[in-house]
């Protein structure tokens, strides 16, 4: 296993957790027709989702590729 893998897994889990939190917020906000439900969807759910996606993208660019650990 790549030495960076546990670090990557932790970031992916966190990104996934944030994404699930965002999706759950969006799901529950769709149950009501109300301005607060609209705002919750856009800003709370949206913030979790953006954070999750950003963390995922960061994790794939910040984690060194396996060959980086074995310079020739």
């Amino acid at each position: 296993m790549n030495a960076a893998a546990p670090h990557l897994y932790r970031k992916l889990r966190l990104a996934g957790g944030l994404t699930i939190a965002g999706l759950l917020v969006e799901f529950f906000s769709l149950l009501r027709i109300h301005p607060l439900a609209f705002l919750t969807f856009m800003f709370v759910g949206g913030a979790f989702l953006v954070a999750g996606i950003a963390l995922y993208l960061y994790s794939i660019i910040a984690t060194p590729a396996p060959h980086d650990n074995h310079p020739s």
Binding site: A15, L23, G52
Partner: peptide, 30 residues
């Protein structure tokens, strides 16, 4: 799973929320 699906889901949900925000019931809930 972590990029395309959440964006697709959120976009569809946002479209639904925008449609709902045009409803009379939405405005009169205040």
């Amino acid at each position: 799973i972590l990029f395309l699906l959440p964006i697709l889901t959120a976009s569809m949900g946002a479209g639904e929320q925008m449609r709902r925000s045009e409803q009379t019931q939405f405005c009169l809930s205040c």
